[in-house]
Amino acid sequence: MNIKLFKGLVLGGMIAASAPAFAADYVIDTKGAHANINLRVNHLGYSFVTGRFEDFNGTFSYDAENPNASSVKVEIDPASIDTNHAERDKHIKSADFLDVSNHPSVTFVSTAYTTNGDGTGVLAGDLTLRGVTKPVEIQVRQIGEGEDPWGGYRAGFHGTAELKLKDFGIEYNLGPAAEVVYLDLNVEGIRQ
């Protein structure tokens, strides 16, 4: 073998081996209904009212070799809330709660991800709701990743979070049992 060719192959292999892996970009699969944002609020201490946002979109970057470099951005249409009760939904959209006429968008932008090394971690970020931006933490668990039957590549995660209504200027008194909204997030993204 030519010595120059051999040196070139060795050098090329060393550069390739030392090159950092880069995070892949994903679009959250809302069109295929493979993602959802669910919520629940305690009702009088007896049960829970549940609901979901029907209209949202977002992206995330993820690298299994360096999960701490992950990032997420999501935008939600708060007027798309559905608790399976039209009158309650109308009240939730009012100025007492989401105030959708003055605040037509809810956003979450991540600021950091800290892995636990076992497929779980904490996603920190800024949530803007009703024009108020507060830091929140989402407990994340990776569900899986791989090729799909249509020639694409997907990654999926589950997350949970708790939001205090008063932190976002929602003062409507539902009683002490209903001061926290529990979020249940299922996110499946398609690699771009």
Rank of each mutant, 00 (worst) to 15 (best):
S71L: 02
A155Y: 03
E171S: 15
A124T: 04
F108K: 00
H158T: 07
V122Q: 04
D167N: 12
F53V: 09
V122M: 01
P67C: 03
I92T: 11
G51H: 07
N68K: 05
A21E: 01
V72Q: 02
K93W: 13
D63R: 02
K93E: 12
L185C: 09
P104F: 11
G51W: 11
F22N: 00
D89N: 09
A33I: 03
V10K: 09
N57S: 15
R40F: 13
Q142H: 05
T30F: 08
H34K: 12
E179S: 05
G151I: 05
V10T: 09
F108M: 05
L129A: 02
V109M: 12
A112M: 01
G159W: 02
N102E: 11
L163S: 09
L98C: 08
V122W: 06
V106K: 00
G121H: 06
T30G: 05
F168D: 07
S94G: 14
I190F: 07
V100I: 13
Y182F: 15
Q192Y: 11
G131V: 03
L44E: 08
Q142D: 04
T133Q: 00
F108S: 00
F60W: 05
A79L: 03
G32D: 07
G144L: 11
Y113C: 00
K90W: 09
D126E: 10
I3T: 08
D118M: 01
T160C: 02
L39G: 15
N38V: 06
F6K: 10
R40K: 15
G159F: 04
V49K: 08
G12S: 15
F53W: 14
T50D: 10
F56I: 00
L98T: 01
S18D: 03
V109C: 06
T114S: 04
Y113V: 01
L174F: 11
V100L: 09
G156Q: 04
N186F: 10
Y26F: 15
G58Y: 05
T120G: 00
N116H: 12
D25I: 13
V109H: 03
R141C: 06
S18P: 06
V41W: 08
G121P: 02
K31Q: 13
H85Q: 07
A161L: 07
E179G: 05
E179K: 07
K31W: 11
N42E: 09
R141M: 12
D167Y: 05
A112V: 01
I138R: 01
Y46Q: 14
D118N: 14
T30H: 09
A17H: 11
R191A: 12
G8K: 03
K166I: 15
E65C: 02
G169S: 10
A79C: 11
P67Q: 00
L123K: 01
D184K: 10
G175A: 12
E137Y: 04
G169A: 13
